[in-house]
Structures are given as structure tokens and as C-alpha cells.
Design a protein around this nucleic acid. Structure first.
Length: 715
DNA sequence: CATATATTCTTGGCAACCAC
DNA sequence: GTGGTTGCCAAGAATATATG
């Protein structure tokens, strides 16, 4: 049965909703290329927007025993792809929890799936996974349940019963992260390492790449997929253009002034190191050639394309062995007219000196040229040209397995059968054709094979509709293969695209090589970069940089909206960073109170208590700040949940002057900015409001009360 | 602020590679 | 051709973030 018939049959048998039935042929068309509804392995790599160097990403349905459930899950996934362009990554994440439904279902039939089955599945999820995963997986489960209910009339009303707060409370995570906030010294050490003279190639390259990350806080794949022309200079602004992930708004990340030079240096180094990679990628795309790795796994393809190679090789004039009036000079890989050369120079000795070879070799070349004139192949060089030559491996004109490997850029066959086929063909081409001056015949043209085994150049970034957004030759991080390792020879006819994995392996090292100091070790270990907090070898991941940079900006006084904008987060996301800002501000407010750099009732009481008991003062501070509400111009210690503000939020105009509940942090630039603004507004109001108006005295006292705090004069 | 979706991080293991 | 080494892919686990 055909793929679409299998789907339709399943839908009809289970009385699927008409809406679903009506799009069944579109669903079938939306399958990945070459995949059918009956297949259990779906290679969905084409559904990835940034596949990196991957060529395969399988969805494995083979573990699902219940055939109808399996079809339902397949349909569900394709529908998501078809109707909402969902990306491969996301779809791959949905499958594992849905497979567990099958386990919970056991031998029961598809149409007996009930809430109980979903509850059992949730149990399984909880048993198998840790931390925040079960909650999220149960979410996938719930959605699938709703979909089954709508499309198949099954009575599933399952909603996830897991407690989200416990597992993914943002506050808890923030605190965890706060603890492992990267120590600035580590980053300084890394940046400075750029200047070291003893760096291996790998470190030279990745340190530069990493410098861009520190300056920008990109997601790792945003960094990996930067375009070549990403650096932007506008006046005294420096930015990096990039392709954002996750529903983007901006596509330029501006760099703080302090880092302009460092980032520019790093960028230029990267350009230099990747230039040949881009040239290579451009050539490859102009003429992609054949995918020999795949060919050499397939006997038919091996036969066809090796024959084609034999034909090309033997029909090439440069490979003809019998050229009149010339001798083949192997060490320089060129033909020479040795007879004329000897004539011009006067002697064989002179010729041998000029060619920098022995006189014997000159004799040999002479013999070759004379024989060629009679249509005979060269003899053995050894033994004064007495013996007939039987081995041609060292003649670079003659076809051999070595020539095939060079041509295909493959170093060996992994498939034995294919290997033997190739050896037979090559020997035949050599003995029966090339050495006899004949051209190997072309195979009967097979356009299906030709098409099937073409190399397919993939874009580095695709959009929703799978159109190319960025090609390898337009990317920044493209290098010749193996050019960053000393253990392998660089392949100058193959390129490698630096992806998230490459960066992450450089940063964190290979598990098996940690602590060895070798090329595979983590960069911190190799460069001996120590974390001052733990005094051990430093360690962090690329994403930690994002958090560090956010904190860096916030603590440096940048408003949260700007930070959100800088990191390309939507306006609605601001509250997340308000939270970060709150904890950060509260922490610095507490510090200011302790250090005597705060103004207000809370600060005064704290220092009063502190004169006789430091401990009690701390406890008082803790209690007050627990309910501290942060406002733009300062913190309010009033418990807004329990009491209402008597001053109608006019903190600077209460009967007692400045409100007792207000606490001003003199060290916080945002606070100062806000207070200055309030003062300015009051002053200008006084200019326009007549003195007789009650409003006048209101603004008068605000102005005076603000001045009385001393915030305006504080540096 | 919960929900839905989109990424990153970690690990095992295959096979390409090198040196003898 | 063999034995050890190394590159890095593929899959799965876990986390980050956009949105209504």
C-alpha cells in the first residue's frame, strides 16, 4: 500500500475528523524527501534551519508497538510541520514522551486510549527524567491528548498534574546561576590569552571566535552562523550583524565601547584564518561534484562511477604514455625533450647537472624518448633499462587506486565489496586500456545514479519555507577541513563548517582527554586558567556568558529595557529581567544600607541598631528588605499588601517630609537619575504654577524635600 | 505567569586517520 | 594490515525564552 493510502486507511478506520482527512494528501507531501508513512526511520534533517555539519537526524518510530498509535503520532508530527512550520529540533523533542504512551498502553488497542493511559505515561516520564524535563514532557503529552480528542473523538481530557514551580522556578534557577556566575578574571585571562605567542592553531582560532561571544552574548548557534560581512561601523558605534534565533526582532548587536578594539582585532584574525575556507566553499558550490563517501557504500554506484573515472582518466591527453619526441620526467611531473636538451648543452653530463639528476637518469630518459618514438612503453629505470616495466604505481600518469583516492578525496573503502569492484576495474583500465594506449569506454549513461549521488551543498541557515538564507561561502566560520589540528593533514579540497559542537568541544574539552593538556583538553586546562573562587581549573559553557553579560550590564547601571533590547528580547520579556534587576538592586541597596550610603528611615534604624548589635541590625535589615518594593527612585519598605500608602505614593511629600518608608540607594545611578528627574519636574512646575495655587506648595515641598536628602549632591 | 516552542549541553561510539 | 588515536556526528537530556 502506498504511503498516502496507508494514512487515509488509518484515518477512515478511526473516523478521523474531516478537517484532518481533507489535508491528508498535503500531509503526505509534507513528509521528508524519500520518507513514507510506513517507514520507521524518518531522516528529518531537511526540517532543521541550522543543521551544522549533520546529514542525518532520525526520528525513530520502531519502538512503538501499537501500529495505529504509531500512525497517529506520525500524523501529529507532520501536521505540526505542515501547519506551523515547526522546526526539526522541536519535533524531535516531542517524540520521546509520545513513545512512552505506547509503553503505558501495552496490549490495549488504539481506540481504548483513556486518561488513565495518559496518567500512567506521566508516571513513566517522572520515573525516567529529572529536573525540569518531566513538566515539559507532560506538556507535550497534554497537547497530543487534546489533538487526539479533537481529531479522533477519543475521550481524553488529560491535563498535566506536575508542579511547575518546584522544578522550573525562575527565582531558584537565578540563584543557582548567581552562585556560578563567571568570575571576571577568567574572562580577562581568556581575552588576554589572544596575545600569547605559544598558542596552537586551534586556540588561536577559537579564542578569537570566543572574543566575539564575550563582546556580544550571542547564542552559540548565532555565533556559529555569523555571516562573513557581519562587522558594522557606524560613526563611533561598532556592531555585529547576525541571524537571530527564536523569533527575532533586531539583527545587530552593538558592542560596548571598551571592547571595540578587542572585538575588531578578533574579527580580523578570524577573517584571515577563514579566507581559504570560503574560497573552497564557493568552488564547491559552483561545481559540487559527486558524493564519493556515499558512492563507495553502494556496489552499483561504485561500479558506475569508477568506470566513469577510468574513462575520464584514460581519455585525458596529459595521461597518454606514448608521446612522440618527449620523455616523461616523473620527479618534476613534466615532459622534456631530452634529445634536444643534450644536443644544446653538448653532453649528457651537462644535462644531468642542469636537471639535477644522475647521468644514469639521463640515459633512462633518453631511452624512454627513443622508445616512445617506436610506440613502446618505458622500461624499468633500474638495471640500465634492461628489464620490462611491470609496476606502474610510481608513474603519476598511470591510473591506480592511489589516483582514485586522490581524485575522490577518500582515503579508504569501508565497504569490502565496493573495494574489490574498484580494484578490478582500475586494474582492467590500466592493463587493458591505458598501457595499450586505449581509452576506457564510458558506462551506459544512468541519469538516476548521476542525480542520486551528486554532492548536495546545504545552506548553513534556512528559513521556514526551507529557502537558503546563508550559504557556506557567505559564512564567517568556514575553514578547510582539519586545518585546526596538528594530528591530521589539512584537506585543501574539503571544508568544515564550525558549528556549535566545535566551539563547545573546544571550550569544555573531550571527556576522555580532560586534564591531559592535549589538543582535546578544555581550553581552561590547556591554558591553565584558574577560577579564583574555587582555585580549580575554570569551567563554564557558552550560554553562561549570556547570563554573565546580562548581569554585567545591569550591575553597570544599564536600564533593563536597554539590556532586553541589546539581547534581542521582546518587550514582554522585560519582567524576566526586572526580576534579575530587582534582586540585583535589592542586593546593592542592602549593601548601601550597610555601608552607610543610603538615606531613609530604614537606613537610619539599621545604623542605630548596628552601634550596639551587628547581628540584630542584620536581622532587621533582612526583615525590612523582604518586603521592600522597588520603585524607579528608590525602595519602599511599606508592606503594600497589608497597608495602604498614606502619601498617595508621593514619597517626597509626606507630613514628615520624605516618607519614612522610602529608602534611597546613593550608589545606584538609576535611583539618582530618577530623583534628579523628579526634582527637575518639580522645579519647572514651580515656574508655571501661580504661587496662589495649592499645587504650588505641593511642588515646593517636593523640591525642598528632595534637596534635603542630599542625593543631588552625592557623587 | 503558565504554556508552548526553540535552543543548548552531554555522551557514546563509529570510522577516518596515522604510524609502523 | 594492524593497532592505537582522534574528529566529530547523532541522539537524547536538559534548559532558555517567546507569547497570549
Amino acid at each position: 500500500m502506498s504511503s498516502s493510502a496507508v494514512l487515509l486507511n488509518f484515518l477512515h478506520k478511526n473516523e478521523a475528523d474531516n478537517a484532518l482527512v481533507s489535508i491528508s494528501s498535503r500531509l503526505n507531501d509534507a513528509l521528508p524527501p524519500g520518507v513514507s508513512f510506513t517507514d520507521d526511520q524518518w531522516n528529518i534533517i531537511d526540517w532543521f534551519k541550522r543543521p551544522g555539519n549533520s546529514k542525518v537526524r532520525n526520528l525513530d518510530f520502531s519502538l512503538i508497538q501499537n501500529q495505529e498509535l504509531k500512525l497517529a503520532i506520525k500524523t501529529y508530527l507532520v501536521e505540526k510541520r505542515l501547519l506551523s512550520y515547526q522546526e526539526g529540533n522541536g519535533l524531535a523533542a516531542i517524540l520521546p514522551p509520545l513513545c512512552l504512551i505506547d509503553e503505558a498502553l501495552g496490549a490495549r488497542p488504539f481506540n481504548k486510549i483513556t486518561n488513565a493511559v495518559f496518567e500512567e505515561t506521566q508516571e513513566l516520564i517522572q520515573q525516567r527524567y529529572n529536573k525540569s524535563v518531566p513538566y515539559r514532557m507532560a506538556g507535550y503529552l497534554e497537547l497530543f491528548g487534546k489533538w487526539l480528542a479533537i481529531n479522533f473523538g477519543l475521550r481524553i481530557t488529560y491535563t498535566k498534574k506536575l508542579n511547575s514551580n518546584y522544578y522550573h522556578g525562575r527565582k531558584a534557577t537565578d540563584e543557582d546561576r548567581e552562585n556560578k556566575l563567571i568570575h571576571p578574571h577568567i574572562l580577562v585571562d581568556l581575552i588576554n590569552a589572544n596575545q600569547r605567542e605559544d598558542l596552537i592553531e586551534r586556540d588561536k582560532f577559537y579564542l578569537s571566535v570566543f572574543t566575539l561571544l564575550i563582546g556580544t552574548g550571542f547564542r552559540i548557534n548565532e555565533l556559529a552562523t555569523l555571516p562573513e560581512d557581519s562587522l558594522i561601523e557606524e560613526g563611533d558605534r561598532l556592531g555585529i550583524r547576525f541571524f537571530p534565533e527564536k523569533k527575532p526582532k533586531l539583527d545587530v548587536r552593538w558592542i560596548p565601547n571598551d571592547w571595540h578594539e578587542t572585538v575588531k582585532d578578533a574579527y580580523e584574525r578570524i577573517l584571515r584564518l577563514t579566507d581559504s575556507g570560503r574560497t573552497l566553499a564557493a568552488e564547491k558550490r559552483k561545481s559540487p561534484g559527486l558524493d564519493w563517501t556515499r558512492i563507495m557504500q553502494d556496489p552499483d554506484a561504485t561500479r558506475y562511477f569508477v568506470i566513469e573515472f577510468c574513462h575520464q582518466w584514460t581519455s585525458n591527453l596529459d595521461h597518454h604514455l606514448l608521446i612522440q619526441g618527449r620523455a616523461w620526467f616523473q620527479s618534476e611531473r613534466r615532459y622534456i625533450d631530452i634529445i634536444s636538451l643534450i644536443g644544446e648543452l653538448g653532453s649528457k653530463s651537462a644535462a644531468s647537472r642542469l636537471l639535477k639528476v644522475s647521468r644514469h637518469t639521463v640515459d633512462y630518459l633518453l631511452d624512454c624518448q627513443l622508445r616512445a618514438g617506436q610506440g613502446l612503453l618505458p622500461r624499468k629505470a633500474q638495471g640500465r633499462c634492461k628489464g620490462e616495466r611491470t609496476d606502474w604505481d610510481t608513474d603519476s600518469r598511470v591510473i591506480s587506486m592511489a589516483r582514485l583516492f586522490e581524485h575522490t578525496n577518500i582515503s579508504k573503502f569501508t565497504n569490502k565489496e565496493c573495494h574489490e569492484i574498484a580494484i578490478k576495474l582500475i586494474e582492467d583500465a590500466r592493463d587493458n586500456y591505458q598501457l595499450k594506449g586505449k581509452t576506457y569506454p564510458l558506462p551506459e549513461s544512468n541519469s538516476k545514479l548521476e542525480k542520486q549521488f551528486q554532492r548536495k551543498e546545504r545552506p548553513i541557515i534556512k528559513d521556514d519555507e526551507e529557502n537558503a538564507v546563508l550559504w557556506p561561502e557567505e559564512a564567517l566560520l568556514v575553514i578547510p577541513k582539519y586545518s585546526l589540528t596538528s594530528k591530521r593533514r589539512t584537506k585543501h579540497n574539503e571544508y568544515y563548517f564550525v558549528s556549535d559542537g566545535g566551539i563547545s568541544r573546544w571550550l569544555c574539552g573531550e571527556l576522555r582527554s580532560l586534564g591531559t593538556g592535549k589538543e582535546e583538553d578544555s581550553v581552561f586546562s590547556r591554558l591553565n586558567i584558574i577560577d579564583p573562587k574555587t582555585e580549580a581549573i575554570a569551567k563554564f559553557t557558552s550560554h553562561d556568558i549570556r547570563h554573565w553579560l546580562t548581569t554585567y550590564y545591569l550591575e553597570g547601571g544599564m536600564p533593563s529595557e536597554q539590556v532586553a533590547l541589546l539581547f534581542n528580547r521582546s518587550e514582554a520579556q522585560n519582567h524576566v529581567y526586572d526580576q534579575t534587576l530587582s534582586t540585583t538592586r535589592l542586593k546593592s541597596l542592602k549593601n548601601s544600607i550597610k555601608e552607610g550610603n543610603a538615606i531613609g528611615h530604614v537606613a537610619d534604624t539599621y545604623s542605630n541598631i548596628a552601634t550596639y548589635s551587628r547581628k540584630q541590625a542584620e536581622e532587621y535589615l533582612e526583615a525590612c528588605t523582604l518586603q521592600m518594593n522597588l520603585m524607579p527612585h528608590g525602595g519602599c519598605s511599606l508592606n503594600w499588601g497589608m497597608e495602604s500608602c498614606q502619601n498617595h505614593n508621593a514619597c517626597f511629600n509626606s507630613p514628615e517630609g520624605v516618607c519614612k518608608s522610602l529608602c534611597l540607594d546613593l550608589n545606584d545611578p538609576e535611583t539618582k537619575k530618577e530623583v534628579v528627574q523628579l526634582h527637575k519636574e518639580a522645579a519647572s512646575a514651580l515656574l508655571y504654577i501661580p504661587e496662589t495655587s495649592p499645587q504650588h506648595s505641593h511642588y515646593q515641598s517636593i523640591k525642598q524635600n528632595i534637596e534635603s536628602t542630599g542625593v543631588l549632591n552625592h557623587e
